[in-house]
Nucleic acid binder design. Structure first.
Length: 264
DNA sequence: ATGCCTTGTCGCACAAGA
């Protein structure tokens, strides 16, 4: 079973690109971030025609997440617990029945947090604290769980081309990295890092200043696997070639493949 | 480099992204 995550930076601007990628990559479950659309405006038909069930958690203009799945949804939750006043659409989770039992997939768009001198950064850190609290609960189920999305965290210096350029940035602050590292220490596996070493493993290249041709990238889109999901991990990958397509997102798809039994 | 692109917005410039 192939599970993917992709910050598409606007679903309406990515109709052709997203369909082309789905036809090529044929993932079973896809987490999308920054759909920048309300639920009613999401073009669900084009994905249904490709064989996907569609669940969205949108917002006007900014943010917004969605999950596409060839497997039927058993259940969908559209909020990250811990702050009833948070009105930003950045999190949803879904449950599926698979050949290896129940599977939970969380789709998140973690706050950017810049500039770090503002409340945007404290919101990011508080959001990460809420995420940790919630994931502690989900881990107690001791079942396959995939937490996928745009984390807006550069975990280590090797996860960016020019670390010195990011020292003042919210994505690379010690507080952000510490919170991400805490998730790993809870038992999650960074699916991409298990199969890809070195300092040329990126998922985002800025539209500005020729970041793509210069390969001035960063790795901020991650897939965290619970121990039970890690037991099923076969491959993981980054579809970086999509960054060179027509009308690209500034992020590229990241995916992982989990072992399913023969009967399916 | 408070710049550089790209997207969405009740557009005719601006906010937000990373």
């Amino acid at each position: 079973m192939k599970i993917a995550t992709w910050n598409i930076n606007g679903i309406k601007a990515r109709l052709d690109t997203s369909q082309a990628w789905l036809r090529e990559a044929h993932p079973d479950i896809v987490c999308l971030q920054e759909i920048k659309s309300i639920d009613e405006g999401f073009p669900r038909e084009i994905f249904e025609e490709l064989g996907y069930n569609v669940e969205t958690h949108g917002q006007k203009g900014f943010n917004g997440v969605a999950i596409l799945s060839k497997i039927p949804f058993d259940d969908v939750v559209r909020c990250l617990p811990g702050d009833d006043n948070d009105e930003q659409s950045r999190y949803m989770e879904a449950r599926f029945s698979t050949s290896f039992g129940s599977l939970t997939v969380a789709c998140l768009y973690l706050p950017n947090g810049n500039p770090i001198s503002t409340e945007k950064f404290s919101y990011k850190l508080a959001w990460m604290d809420r995420l940790e609290t919630h994931l502690i609960e989900l881990l107690k189920e001791e079942a396959p769980l995939v937490v996928a999305g745009d984390f807006n965290v550069i975990p280590e210096p090797e996860d960016c081309n020019r670390p010195e350029a990011w020292v003042e940035d919210a994505l690379f602050q010690p507080q952000s990295r510490e919170r991400y590292r805490r998730l790993l220490n809870m038992g999650f596996t960074d699916a991409i890092r298990t199969g890809h070493v070195g300092n040329d493993v990126y998922t985002f290249w800025d539209y500005q200043a020729g970041a793509w041709p210069k390969n001035n990238g960063i790795r901020i889109d991650h897939m965290l696997l619970s121990p039970q999901a890690t037991d099923l991990l076969m491959h993981s990958g980054i579809d970086r070639e999509t960054r060179g397509w027509e009308k690209p997102s500034d992020h590229v798809p990241v995916w992982t493949e989990l072992l399913t039994s023969q009967k399916n």
